[in-house]
């Protein structure tokens, strides 16, 4: 017997809801799952056009890997970013979209957010697998680094899940959240070294008449060390700085704890507010 709320029940439920999301995602589209791969490849192509052809940006060279390939370098940062952006967008809507379920059946509501994040993690892992194969094909022997990658994915998932719980729960009360998050994510995309290298961000600069340590402020964004860490491991083939790992892990744990706290506070009145 898997009574309501036991670990086995919650796990089964999360798996089933995840597979519902996954199956629903590409149902009735001719290319189906291929879209999951075509999307980041198309984005990579667009940015490669813009930066390589129009801006004539130099290829970032991997240190110590020696790899020099703009699209691959881009994908190393783009894939984790897409995972974050898709998950947060989805998590924000996940409770409102399932209003009918919440109003009619009792089950631990967090499962809806978890299933949404999981449903974006699966295509992310597939894309990642393809990227790893591409990197291998271009001579980057990434296999020994995969355990570190898994840790990074775990940390980012905890970060995303925590924020997703907050966004989803608050969106039940204020539907503004989903509009707000679209803008915030767009700003954050350019505030993270995905399409340009971190080295382009000045260490200090004068803004609004103030001499600011821009680079340090910029690095407060947890996605900066996160994306840098993914690139270190996959593109450069080196360990990320230990301090960065501690910093992103702290964010991951902190967001998760805060997410739990906020969600639990807001959860009791979901059925009434939806």
């Amino acid at each position: 017997m898997a009574a309501l709320g036991t670990y086995a029940h919650v796990r089964d439920l999360a798996l089933n809801l995840t597979s519902r999301e996954l199956k629903g995602k590409y149902k009735r589209s001719v290319l189906g799952w291929c879209w999951s791969l075509l999307n980041p490849l198309a984005t990579a192509l667009i940015f490669t056009m813009v930066f390589k052809v129009f801006f004539q940006a130099p290829n970032p060279s991997g240190e110590p890997s020696g790899l020099s390939n703009f699209p691959l370098w881009l994908l190393c940062g783009l894939l984790p970013w897409n995972y974050l952006a898709n998950s947060l967008n989805g998590a924000t809507e996940s409770l409102v979209a399932n209003a009918n379920l919440i109003k009619k059946v009792y089950f631990p509501r967090q499962v809806l957010v978890v299933a949404n994040v999981a449903s974006w993690m699966v295509p992310f892992l597939i894309e990642f697998g393809v990227l790893a194969l591409l990197l291998l094909a271009f001579g980057n022997f990434v296999l020994p680094w995969l355990p570190v990658v898994l840790v990074l994915i775990l940390v980012q998932t905890s970060f995303v899940l925590g924020i997703g719980l907050i966004l989803g729960a608050v969106n039940v009360y204020f539907r503004d959240v989903k509009h707000l998050i679209a803008i915030v994510l767009q700003a954050l995309f350019y505030a993270t070294p995905i399409v340009y290298p971190l080295s382009l961000v000045p260490v200090r600069a004068v803004l609004f008449g103030l001499d600011l340590p821009v680079r340090s402020l910029y690095r407060l964004n947890p996605m900066v060390p996160m994306v840098e860490a993914f690139r270190d491991v996959l593109y450069d083939l080196r360990l990320p700085p230990f301090g960065d790992l501690v910093y992103v892990s702290a964010w991951g744990l902190g967001c998760m704890a805060l997410g739990q706290l906020v969600f639990r506070r807001l959860e009791p009145r979901f059925a009434e507010e939806l």
Binding site: N16, N98, L101
Partner: peptide
Amino acid sequence: ALLELGAGFHPELSGRENIFLNGSILGLGR
């Protein structure tokens, strides 16, 4: 609780898939 029948059915999924989905929402193990 039978408050609504077929709560959580996904229209694009088959009857078989929905039985497993709906069943687990209602608290049944696999």
